[in-house]
Design a protein around this nucleic acid. Structure first.
Length: 242
DNA sequence: AACGGTTGCAACCGCCTTTAA
DNA sequence: TTTAAAGGCGGTTGCAACCGT
């Protein structure tokens, strides 16, 4: 099957940001049909819009739908996204590796390095959130947060200590030398405890102790359970000063 | 105040899957 | 069974807003 022609390539079809009038026309048309769209391709003409059907569908599903929740993601939503990403990312990664392009798309673009995880599937678990919104939130917030923690956002595995230090340095160029050397001295250690200590210390420097404790508690329950005292961030630093 | 860099989000692009003739 | 049309999805891009110098 070859690629199908798309109405988006029609000459004269408007692109770019939607105006209020266009939004209104689309909403009125869909509401008039009881919230159902027969054919997206035919919709623009029927609604009096000079837009591609795909564009209309995207505008409706990502922005105009009445059940869309606006505003910041809650901590619970964030945790859920990460959990689902970890689960679905692995599933999709294995699935996709066998039948389409590799799950990881790395580009020269600085904006996003994404994993094919099934954003739409994740979106079905979050009321009022769209796949596009979740994808954007992942790429702009969660991904960076995980990298700062030394967690690979693609595999959800801990990055090698060198990478953790590199990431922390990139995130906080002013990180004190002494702190880094102390953490680096733990790099070769295998124990989860020591690595967690190093990680938490770095996070403290980057984000502040409370944030670090919160992140570790959120994303690494195993570490949390094994070493609850670590989550008292202030107790860590003296260990390094010894 | 002006400028350059960064960030976040809306929208587009292209590929894949599904559906129907 | 084959083929083309249509829908759906993930990746990428463009741009406005924000921030630091």
């Amino acid at each position: 099957m070859g690629r199908s022609p798309c109405c988006c390539h029609d000459a004269g079809v408007k692109k770019g940001p939607w105006t209020e009038e266009e939004d209104r026309a689309l909403v009125v048309h869909i509401q008039r049909h009881g919230g159902h769209v027969g054919s997206w391709r035919n919709l623009p003409k029927a609604a009096g819009l000079n837009r591609c059907g795909k564009s209309c569908r995207l505008r409706w599903t990502n922005y105009l739908r009445p059940d869309i929740k606006r505003g910041n993601f809650t901590a619970d939503e964030e945790r859920l996204i990460i959990a689902l990403h970890a689960e679905l990312g692995n599933k999709y990664g294995q699935l996709l590796a066998t039948r389409r392009s590799p799950p990881v798309a790395v580009t020269a673009n600085t904006h996003a390095v994404c994993l094919c995880v099934g954003w739409s599937t994740i979106a079905t678990h979050l009321d009022g959130r769209t796949d596009n919104e979740i994808k954007n939130y992942w790429n702009t917030h969660i991904r960076k947060k995980l990298l700062r923690m030394g967690v690979d956002p693609v595999t959800h595995q801990r990055l090698p200590p060198d990478d953790v230090l590199g990431g922390a340095l990139a995130a906080a160029p002013g990180l004190p030398e002494a702190l880094l050397s102390a953490a680096a001295s733990l790099g070769g250690l295998n124990s989860v405890l020591m690595q967690a200590q190093a990680l938490q210390l770095l996070l403290q420097a980057v984000n502040g102790g409370a944030a670090a404790a919160g992140l570790i508690a959120s994303f690494s329950p195993a570490v949390d359970n094994a070493m609850p005292p670590l989550l008292n961030a202030s107790s860590i630093v003296p260990n390094f000063q010894d």
